[in-house]
Design a protein around this nucleic acid. Structure first.
Lengths: 162, 162
DNA sequence: TGATGTTATGTTATAGAATAACATTTGTTA
DNA sequence: TAACAAATGTTATTCTATAACATAACATCA
C-alpha cells in the first residue's frame, strides 16, 4: 500500500514502543500480557491500517500457531479492556491506541481510500457530549465518534477518487 | 418491554406521521416508496427500539411475504439513501429518522438497558468536528456519533443495574 | 512437592450480519 | 406491444462474533 503522511496529531509510536508501553502498563496493573496477547498487539501495530479479527487470525496461523476465532477475540477483548487498542465499530476492525493508560473512547478519522486512521483527542468534543448527556441525566458507558472520509494525501490523487 | 419516557428532544413522531412524511418526501423526489419499502419503514417505526435486519425479515415473513436477507437489505439501503432511517453501527440496528428531509448523520444516545434511542442534533458538535476535519484537510463523507449508556428511567431501576 | 483453584487457551460448532450473482417480475416509456 | 429499466425473488456464500466445553498453564498454599 502506498505511503501516506501521519494522520495523527500525536508523535508516531511504532510497534516496539507500543509493546514496551503495554508491558509496563500491564505490569503496573497486574494484568498478564501473555505471548498470544502480545503477539496480537504486535500484529495490530505492525499494520499501517486497522485489521479485522480474521486477518489477525490469518497472521497467527502464518506464525505456525494454532487458533480459531475465539483465540483472537479473547486476546482482543483483553487488549480492549486494558485500553491498548480501539475497535472501530463502523468497519469492524481494530487499531492500536495512541494514548494507552487513559481509558478513553477516542475520536477517529478514517480514510476511505487508504484506510489509515487518525485518532483525535479533542476535549471540547468530549465536553459537549458530556454536557448533552448530563442535561438529560444519561449515564455514559461508551462513546463512539468515527468520521469516514478522505485524507489530505488521498485527496491529492485523482485516480483514487472512485 | 416496559415503558420509558421519550428520550428524544424532538416531539415524538409516530409511525403514521413518519409514513406520511416519507410518502411526501419520496413523491417530491420522484423516489419510489414501494409496498415493501413502506412496510419496512413501518416495521421500524412500530418498534420502541431499533431493529436488526433479521428481525425485520422475521416480521415480513409473519406478514406472509416471501423474503430473504437481500430483500430487507435492499429496502434498508433505499431508506438510508432517502434519509428516512439511520443505521447504528455499534449495534447493527436500524431506527427511524426523526428529521427526515435533511440528510444528516445524527448523534445518538443508546440505552443499554431498555434499548431506546434518542437522536440528538447538536450543531455545536457538528461544528467542532467540522473544524477538526477542516484543519486537517480531511473530507468528510459520513459521521458516526453514538453514545452507549443508561437512560434516566433505567437509572431509577436498581434491579436493572446488572 | 503436590493438591487445588483460577486463568488462559484449544476446539468444535453455531449464530448473526451482509453481500454476490443470477432469475424473475413489475413498471415505464417509446 | 416491444423494449428497457427498476424492483424483487432466490440460492449460495462470505464475513463477524460467540456459545459451550475440553485442556493446559499458572498460582497459592497446605
Amino acid at each position: 500500500m502506498r505511503q501516506a503522511g501521519d494522520l495523527s496529531c500525536a508523535p508516531s509510536i511504532d510497534a516496539q514502543q507500543a509493546l514496551a508501553r503495554a508491558e509496563a502498563l500491564c505490569q503496573q496493573r497486574g494484568a498478564r500480557l501473555t505471548d498470544l496477547r502480545r503477539r496480537v498487539l504486535e500484529i495490530i501495530w505492525s499494520s499501517a491500517t486497522p485489521l479485522g479479527a480474521y486477518t489477525i487470525l490469518d497472521v497467527l496461523r502464518d506464525d505456525g500457531r494454532q487458533g480459531a476465532p475465539p483465540t483472537v477475540y479473547r486476546a482482543l477483548d483483553f487488549l480492549l479492556a486494558q485500553g491498548l487498542i480501539h475497535r472501530l465499530a463502523s468497519l469492524n476492525v481494530f487499531t492500536g491506541c495512541r494514548r494507552p493508560g487513559s481509558h478513553h473512547s477516542g475520536q477517529f478519522l478514517i480514510c476511505r481510500d487508504c484506510g489509515r486512521v487518525s485518532e483525535l483527542s479533542n476535549p471540547a468534543i468530549d465536553e459537549l457530549l458530556r454536557a448533552e448527556t448530563d442535561a438529560r441525566g444519561f449515564e455514559v458507558l461508551a462513546q463512539i465518534v468515527e468520521i469516514l472520509g478522505r485524507c489530505p494525501d488521498c485527496l491529492e490523487e485523482p485516480t483514487r477518487h472512485d
